[in-house]
Design a protein around this nucleic acid. Structure first.
Ligand code: FES
Ligand code: FES
Lengths: 145, 145
DNA sequence: TTAATAAAGGATAAAAAACTCTTTTTATTT
DNA sequence: AAATAAAAAGAGTTTTTTATCCTTTATTAA
């Protein structure tokens, strides 16, 4: 496994995909998203259903329905998605799996691990959902294969 | 979950524990190790059995038997343990879960993620198994609770 | 040479994560 | 109003990870 669960990876890719495809106001359906990011359709539906319940992504039923982001949601940091899906383990957990990461009773890797963990947090907090629309437009970055 | 699997977290803690407890030539049994790091005994036995088969940790059966490290094994980098248990995903995998991480067709996070991944690799490669014996001796670092 | 000790090995179980299928609800278009 | 489109919801199934238990094998020591 990587740093994030598979569910979380799908969620992040889907969110970038939706942001890009709906930047000019439209909506995009589950079928197109799952094709676009290369994920199982039904599984992704569950994931987005959950993000929608949490108000992270917007959705509309019926014809011309689909998923989209309103203006303010586009500014959301990627960390919101990670936290919603994987919890805060990546941000606060001990690298060696101790129950708590602590300065008082640190694991051998604590000092160095803490820095890395903070960088991950920084990256996710500073990256917004709508940030890569331009690159995706230009085909400079990829979300599948 | 964190960056590593639970199996891998147990493996790393156990390895540090064994290194410390056997620095002066002895051996240490599974019961004591699992107590020392706070892991299920039978499960850890499986993990160490695997590391032993791979020649990463040394073991001896019978009375006064147990696990230990010979001089050269103590110099092994922690990355050897991680790679044996979790594979090379942490070192080479794409943060968004794309099949391959690539410069040619990078994911949106690639550039920043690559740096973080390299730091993790560096940390694990530069840290040796026997490195923390002193800190553990002094009670400056912990392996459980 | 027998008894005790400790890891190795094999088989199984429980829990979590990943994934599927079917029905229901809501909205749109005709 | 009827037909249709699309997400929401609910109820599974499958696979992987985590964990337990029991038997066998090797080693030591009395
Ligand atoms: S205690 Fe392990 S990372 Fe802080
Ligand atoms: S392509 Fe995603 S990290 Fe390199």
């Amino acid at each position: 496994m990587g740093i994030f669960s598979k569910t979380c990876e799908y969620a992040m890719r889907a969110v970038f995909f939706i942001a890009h495809r709906t930047a000019s106001g439209g909506r995009v359906g589950i079928k197109e998203i799952s094709k676009g990011i290369g994920s199982p359709e039904a599984f992704l539906a569950k994931i987005l259903q959950d993000l929608s319940r949490r108000g992270i992504v917007q959705s509309a039923k019926g014809p011309n329905g689909g998923f989209y982001f309103d203006k303010s949601s586009l500014k959301r940091p990627l960390s919101d998605i990670v936290e919603a899906v994987d919890g805060d383990g990546v941000f606060v957990g001990c690298g060696l799996g101790l129950e708590y990461c602590s300065e008082i009773s640190p694991c051998p890797l604590h000092n160095q691990f803490k820095d890395i963990r903070n960088q991950i947090k920084d990256l996710l907090q500073k990256t917004s959902i709508g940030e890569f629309n331009e690159e995706l437009n230009l085909g400079l970055t990829a979300l599948r294969k």
